[in-house]
Design a protein around this nucleic acid. Structure first.
Lengths: 287, 287
DNA sequence: CGGGGCGTGGAAGAATTCGTTCATCCGGTT
DNA sequence: AACCGGATGAACGAATTCTTCCACGCCCCG
């Protein structure tokens, strides 16, 4: 019986497994073989690899999710791939943040990865993203201010005039924004309301940091957010062409390029990084 | 070997199991036998009972949590008991809500139970509770407005001047509030900032509904919220004395008393009620 | 005082799952 | 064209878990 999906690389399949168990917190082997259309052995191997990366936790009977975004039900995830890039970008972006900073975190999957790495650092966090807020809500070490407003059901982001009004009374050191596209005219996002809120965010921050993986460059999206000159830092990955690197820097922004090391398949040389930030579920087997 | 706990009734032990798997999302049988100090058979029976009530989901190797508050990491839960009361109250309170209503939901465990039952109904929801917002964020059928502000790390509710300001521009049909205590002087809560926000909530609503289990009556708490006359509906359980019933009604409020039926031990006559509202994790075993 | 219900603990057989091994297929390389 | 590494699917024994059954202690009630 051919697999239901036409052709799926190993990494794509494992990403799909992650999406599934992230949404449901748990899945049996039967569930996964049924959805993916591959044999039990293959799923078993995938889970073994995912566990080694710290993203999943195998138990007798299935898998639990322990990786990023431990309890957000469903992210927008327009492109489930590019995960290694997003993580690498996030690792580089957190270098710009010092303990005690007041920061503003936008919604978006890349920004979410940044937020994950920032949990545990003493910060004053402002965000309009419900998933990000969930990350910091439990932490007694950092203040959290949520920018209220209408919540977009797909992305879990607050936007609209209520959010805009609330930003007006706030002031932060650094704003970290994610965008849908970048081209010569500047940065773009695909939500009109969101762009309005993001403009207020930029006004409220001393420094604006844009995180965008290299695939975002050279395209446009629904709504223009701001010109290239309006941001102070751009963080991307090493897939960015030299052409674009020059364009960004000539626009006056500091460019940080993250090297994507982990190739998703090889056992990462420094694992445990992802797991050390939050405390994943750990089963204590006495016996 | 005697059990580590001095003496523990069946219900208390099962409650403890629920607390454990609610916090961790999953536990193996070994975990539970180790913590509870009882034999594997007993835990197995407990899990069987809990699954029948819809609170847990057994899998090969352990248990998953599927009951209330599916993914809020840690509620305040000042009193883990009174769960049956809270659920009964919630079932009664939702009778006051019609599809299409605009409602305002406070934080608190009882209010959270109300929110759980309301998921799936077309509503305009306004809340300052992060856990409640998470319930509605995914639903495309209902609008969600989150009242931003400083998030209290213990309870996950937004409060303070930012939240107060945001309520000012909103108007809802019904506000559902939970309180910490009720006595002749009125309603009380134990958080000064929160009380301020809740007063604004009451002003923004046409009708105010207070949910409070019977143990809350006759005591006081840190901060006075409002007199008895300021609310239109009070929902409590049948543990409420006739004395208090009269006091509430003579103050001009409509009193709704929920009968606590499920005694936590007997298999409930109408199970599946809790599970039919939202879609719990359901493992499809093809075989 | 004896019986019945309830909760508990343990054991044996049945069922499921896991880890390992092996054969096959595909794409890139020499 | 031949080779080789990676990925896949299948099968088998081993390990774990589940279900069922039974005996014991406790408490209430007749």
């Amino acid at each position: 019986m051919p697999p239901s999906q036409s052709t799926l690389t190993v990494q794509e399949r494992r990403q799909q497994i992650l999406e599934l168990i992230r949404a449901r917190h748990f899945a049996t082997l039967d569930d996964l073989t049924g959805v993916l259309g591959v044999s039990e052995s293959t799923v078993r191997r995938d889970l073994e690899a995912l566990e080694e990366e710290g993203e999943a936790h195998r138990i007798h009977g299935g898998v639990l999710y322990t990786g990023s975004s431990p309890k957000l039900p469903h992210f927008e995830m327009r492109q489930p791939m590019r995960w290694a890039e997003k993580k690498a970008i996030a690792r580089m972006a957190v270098e710009l943040i010092q303990p005690g900073d007041s920061i503003l975190l936008d919604g978006g999957s890349t920004t979410y990865e940044v937020a994950r790495l920032l949990t545990g650092m003493p910060l004053h966090v402002v965000t309009n993203s419900l998933p990000v807020a969930n990350l910091f809500a439990s932490s007694p070490i950092s203040d959290l201010v949520f920018l209220g407003g209408s919540i977009c059901p797909r992305s879990g982001v607050a936007q609209g005039p209520l959010a805009d009004a609330m930003i007006g009374s706030l002031r932060v050191r650094k704003a970290i924004l994610s965008v849908a596209a970048v081209n010569e005219q500047g940065f773009f996002n695909n939500n009109v309301l969101l762009v309005g809120t993001e403009r207020r965010m930029m006004e409220a921050a001393d420094e604006v940091i844009v995180v965008a993986d290299s695939s975002k460059f050279g395209h446009c999206s629904l709504t223009h957010l701001c010109p290239l000159e309006a941001v102070q830092y751009v963080v991307s990955d090493d897939g960015l062409t030299a052409d674009w690197r020059e364009k960004i820097e000539s626009a006056g922004a500091r460019l940080l390029v993250a090297t994507v090391q982990e190739r998703q398949t090889t056992p990462p040389p420094e694992l445990g990084d992802a797991g050390s930030v939050d405390s994943p579920i750990r089963t204590i087997r006495s016996s």
